[in-house]
Design a protein around this nucleic acid. Structure first.
Length: 137
DNA sequence: ATTCTAACA
DNA sequence: TGTTAGGA
């Protein structure tokens, strides 16, 4: 509810986030480049992360460990924007819908990619995503 | 002391 | 991804 405000307030610098997530600064910045996270900035251009950012990073880390690449994560995770943040605050129903939709999309992507990834396409983003189905997330 | 961007023996 | 140079 209204503590989304707290979860979204930029509080910690990258150093703390590194310890909190066990990710390197390189990785954190890299994920930001790919818009998986959008941390705030200080006047001095230093990143300030919120609890939500940390949570997202932990999820990203989890997916990476399962072998999902950036392209795959982009499709599995909820988009980062004011719109989505509001949606999360306004209705938890939409959040549930987004998750169910994600799995549906994954299923779709799974087939879509199983047929288009024939040559030596090692960067298939379905890696690991299979485990999501088999392990029931 | 920390973090930032850009670039690659 | 790691690492490093050169600057805030």
């Amino acid at each position: 509810m209204a503590d989304d405000l707290r979860r979204n307030m930029a509080l910690f610098p990258i150093g703390i986030v590194m310890k909190l997530t066990d990710l390197t600064a390189r990785q954190i910045r890299y994920y930001e480049q790919h818009e998986l996270i959008v941390p705030a900035r200080t006047s001095g251009n230093q990143r300030l992360f919120s609890f939500n950012d940390v949570e997202r990073l932990l999820e990203i880390k989890s997916l990476i460990e399962k072998g999902v690449n950036i392209a795959g994560i982009k499709q599995v995770m909820n988009p980062v924007s004011k719109e989505s943040e509001e949606a999360t605050v306004v209705s938890e129903q939409s959040e549930v819908k987004r998750k169910e939709l994600s799995d549906t999309q994954l299923h779709r992507l799974l087939k879509q990619q199983l047929i288009e990834k024939r040559p030596g396409n090692k960067a298939s983003m379905i890696q690991g995503q299979l485990s999501r189905f088999y392990n029931k997330n």
